[in-house]
Amino acid sequence: MIEVTDLGYRHHARSPWVFKHHSLSLKKGEVGAIIGPNGRGKTTLLKALLGLIKPQQGSVTFAGLPAYVPQGTDTSFPYRVRDLVVMGRARTLGLFASPSRQDYRLADEAMARVGIEALANRRLTELSGGQRQLVLIARALASQCDILVLDEPTSALDYHNQNRVMAVLEQARNDGVTVLFTTHSPQHALAIADSVLLMFGPDEYRFGPCDEVLTDQQLARLYNIDIRTLPFEHNGQAHRAVVPVFGSMA
């Protein structure tokens, strides 16, 4: 469960607010998506609610252990995948401790859950973008978290890899993990999110169930371009496709 109330952040006392009075709440096992244009502060919002940066206003409540999946990792030291995933266990290890056999077992399980067992002994630098994303998710899962916070987990991935990441998130949700992620693609929100937060501006946002919030009108306002959501059917299920009308102005 995540409960965010009245969150506000600015870089320092005199700079304008990046966002303020933002609230959202997700129940256990729910998926939330944060959507906003480039530079609106999606990543900042995630960091603020995780406490990686200190918000000046508001409160955040996590019921359970959160884990963070950054957009990417850039290390000068290209560790092996398995050694990187086991770092998810760092929280539970003392200052002088190294991961035990049990920690490695949990890391192996997490890799199995996202389907990257075969990569265990590869170096991070040898992997594709999609594989790296899965490694980072596995690392988060290895911490046995209850809440998964992901920053644009599908950006820069092809459809196949987007599909894999989405499947992994869906499975995590089914296992009872609360998931919150940022994305540029309303389509992803439609696919798996229960609730969506649209960031219109520093003190203007909309949070609510997917169906209510992700309307043509709201999306057009968010991106300043005509966007249509077109219904279609697949295997007897109703879906909606998000289609931007390029060349138009809202």
């Binding site: 990686l52 963070y68 030291f77 770092m87 290890l93 002088f96 991961p99």
Partner: peptide, 25 residues
């Protein structure tokens, strides 16, 4: 000796401040 024992912590630290912090150290 303590420094060698901190070897795993140093691995985590080498990922960068935010990542290390988000991993709980």
């Amino acid at each position: 000796l303590p420094l060698v024992l901190m070897r795993f912590r140093i691995n985590v630290l080498s990922l960068g401040d935010e990542e290390a912090q988000s991993l709980g150290i």
